[in-house]
Write a protein that binds this DNA or RNA. Structure first.
Lengths: 233, 233
DNA sequence: TAAAACAACTGATCTGAATCATGTTTGTGA
DNA sequence: TCACAAACATGATTCAGATCAGTTGTTTTA
């Protein structure tokens, strides 16, 4: 009946494509972008944009890693993790929206290009190839959020944690053996659960030899088993 | 610090704008759309599109009401409710995506215009004003999903139910006194909780004179109190 | 028109995961 | 290098909300 749904949906937070819209610009348009953008170095932990502030730029992650999250009263929800080659703040180009609805901070030292939002809007209106690529980014993002939305509201915590571990290994670090940059708190915000439970569950995965943890060093020993846990919720 | 966040975010499912992209088409383009679309009547409960099937059309709700949802093994998640004047299946225009990631059914007898997806893609590439409007729709949708995502993962059930009641009254029925078309099960899928709990909580709201229910007839007696419940999670 | 299917409703029970309390380790900056 | 704050870790307790097991009323449909 709906066998297909469980396969597709993970609470993965990272797109595995990069933004191709700038390839579609003419020489003059590229120049326009260059003349209306600044490249800034952000240190680890610094705000790239802050929820509630005026949205004047679209941000392109040239180098580094950023997390996008919604700030709540007590705890946050990480919407996505943005690796290099992707845009942040694209939703602000909607003309009815002038305020950032989320915050972004640099996970590691990052190089970000801030592009004037009105230039971006102008390019969309004048170059439909560019606009088409922007649409691709937005729709892909949409689909990803739908999957994550379903997982975080319908899977239980072991499944969600398994999802995230696989996502980090496969999409961010591109290895089953990696040094985790995120804290347990981050993992909690990513999976929508408490920090304490993240710790407990990681320990359980370790006890069952699904993963190995030595300090910050993570090793996924059985991706298949984690996949199964992810699928069974 | 982040006073603003609680105000903005609700688990509301309905955009209060309508799709304006078709206004941007030339006479010839409008004709192209007309020649490559069919208008179909759907009866209440019929599938408008089915998760997992090939996405060949974008759907425009001319008249009626549709629900968009992700099918899970046991239970579903309603992503959004689409009133007349809006598009369904826009995320399928992403070139990497040929399969519907969600289902849509008609809540009430509805008139839907099915537009060939390739024509839609073509228009995006040839008419940047059109593309720009599509971007507006997508970004607005994105922002709405972010809010809903946060609420469904961070608010507790009374807050979520209060949200939905207000959303239905204010955005769908545009009155605090309305005949509810949705079942308790629908409300459960909308708020991410069990049907039984929806019933219990509605009863509690009724006992506390926040709402009144007579069969299908709903009356919101104290929007302010519901608003407060929504804000406090 | 019987019977099946669905919708609304209720109470009892169970459990996943949050919260609280407390301790240990690691990091870092004055 | 000491101090103080994060981050990591674990056990005990609590609780929101799911699940289960019904009853009653109302549409479908066979």
């Amino acid at each position: 009946m709906n066998m297909n749904s469980s396969h597709v949906l993970t609470s993965c937070t990272v797109s595995n494509t990069t933004c191709k819209c700038f390839d579609k610009l003419t020489v003059e348009e590229t120049e326009l972008v260059e003349n209306n953008s600044v490249t800034v170095n952000f240190n680890k932990g610094e705000f790239i944009c802050k929820q509630g502030t005026f949205a004047s730029h679209v941000m392109f992650v040239k180098d580094g890693l950023a997390k996008i999250y919604v700030e709540g009263k007590n705890d946050n929800l990480i919407l996505k993790i943005i690796p290099e080659g992707n845009l942040v703040g694209l939703t602000s180009i909607f003309e009815g929206n002038t305020i950032f609805q989320y915050s972004a901070i640099a996970y590691i030292d990052s190089v970000i290009k801030l592009i004037d939002i009105n230039v971006f809007r102008k390019l969309i209106k004048s170059n439909s190839e560019f606009a088409s690529e922007v649409i691709n980014i937005l729709t892909e993002n949409n689909l990803q959020i739908y999957g994550r939305f379903f997982c975080l509201t319908h899977k239980q915590s072991y499944g969600r944690l398994a999802d995230i571990i696989l996502c980090l290994a496969e999409r961010i670090y591109k290895s089953y053996d990696f040094e985790l940059l995120l804290t347990r708190k981050d993992l909690g915000e990513l999976t929508g659960m408490s920090t304490e439970n993240v710790i407990r569950m990681l320990k359980k995965f370790k006890d069952e030899s699904l993963i190995d943890i030595q300090g910050k060093q993570f090793k996924v020993l059985s991706p298949e088993a984690l996949m199964k846990i992810s699928e069974n919720g």
